[in-house]
Amino acid sequence: MDKSISHDPLVLVARRAAAAGAEVLSRRDESQFNLNDKSAAGDWVTDFDRASEEAIRATIVTSRPNDELTGEEFPSAKPSHPSGVRWSIDPLDGTTNFVRNIAYYCSSVGACQLEEDGTETWVAAAIVAPALQVEYFAGKSLGAWKHDLRTGKLIQLTGPVESATKILGTGFGYDAERRQFQARVLEGMLEDYVNVRRIGSAALDLCLVAEGALDAYAEYGTQEYDWAAGALIAEEAGCQVGRPASNPGWQYAGLVDTAKLSVPGS
């Protein structure tokens, strides 16, 4: 692994924070879920979501008290003397998988830098999937990596290769009308792929594209915390990446014909 990424201060904090969140998730206990719906039936939140985000925030604040924090479960935290760095946190991406004991869930942490022109540049990312025992991380212009937590093996990610047997990853919203729209768009895309996978975690979908296990990923209506880390990991692996210009919008990565990604009413 290149020393520049192994010593990058924001990447190091991202990795520590994602690991802290994942450690909470590794203590999964069905008796302690305290399961509740959020936006719709099936859009679950548990005490583990909240405890994981608390662990992630505490890890970041310990090293970088002047950074802004945004996340899925708690209000944004803006410091009195902001550093210009903002963190986007998804403490448990794949809550449904977590509740149902399906291994594809993770803690996801991304950092962006506020530029002089007011734009934000994503600069550091880390995702840890405790049930899979794998970590993904990336830094802006520093590459993307997969870390097998069982063996310690590190692999630099280089994305998918064009082939005649491409597989698409996607996801569906909790709202029935949105699912119907997503299915219509998916029908128009299917001619480009031999099959589809629905993993249940946008962050891990993006990582799977980064490592070439999936050839493409496209999903409508994801939130920033869903893609903040995974999009940078895919981008640093050399993938075409699209971040939603508006919310909701399309998040995509890999070998995607973007002309087929319509919006409702078009």
Rank of each mutant, 00 (worst) to 15 (best):
D2G: 07
K3A: 07
P9F: 03
L10Y: 04
L12P: 00
V13F: 01
V13L: 07
V13D: 01
V13E: 00
R15G: 00
R16H: 11
A18F: 07
A18H: 05
A20R: 00
G21A: 11
E23W: 12
V24L: 08
D29F: 07
F33I: 07
L35E: 14
N36C: 13
A40F: 09
A40S: 14
A41D: 12
W44S: 04
D47L: 14
D47W: 07
D47P: 02
D49N: 13
D49W: 02
R57Q: 13
V61C: 03
T62G: 01
T62E: 13
R64K: 08
D67I: 00
L69S: 02
F74N: 09
P75C: 10
P79A: 11
H81I: 12
S83D: 14
G84M: 10
W87S: 02
I89Q: 03
D90Y: 07
D93M: 07
G94N: 03
T96S: 14
F98D: 01
R100T: 15
I102H: 08
A103S: 13
G110V: 04
G110C: 09
L114A: 12
L114R: 11
E115G: 07
D117F: 13
G118A: 11
E120D: 11
T121W: 08
A124I: 01
P130N: 08
P130I: 03
A131K: 07
A131Y: 00
L132I: 05
L132M: 11
V134F: 04
V134Y: 00
G139Q: 00
G139E: 00
K140N: 10
G143C: 13
G143Y: 08
H147Y: 14
T151W: 06
K153L: 10
I155R: 15
T158Y: 12
P160H: 11
E162L: 13
S163W: 12
L168D: 02
L168N: 03
G169W: 01
G169A: 14
T170L: 02
Y174S: 10
E177H: 10
R178G: 03
Q180N: 12
F181M: 07
Q182N: 01
R184P: 03
V185T: 14
E187W: 05
G188N: 14
M189E: 03
M189P: 01
D192A: 09
V194N: 09
V196D: 04
R197G: 05
I199N: 01
G200K: 02
G200M: 00
S201I: 05
A202W: 01
A203Q: 00
L204D: 02
L204N: 04
D205Y: 04
D205P: 02
V209F: 06
E211K: 06
G212N: 10
L214W: 01
A216E: 00
A218H: 00
A218R: 02
E219R: 06
E219D: 10
G221M: 05
A228T: 09
A228R: 00
G230Y: 04
I233C: 06
I233P: 04
A234C: 14
G238F: 12
R243D: 06
A245M: 09
N247A: 13
W250V: 01
Q251C: 15
A253N: 06
G254C: 10
L255F: 11
L255G: 03
V256S: 02
V256F: 03
D257S: 15
T258V: 15
T258I: 15
L261N: 08
S262Q: 15
G265N: 13
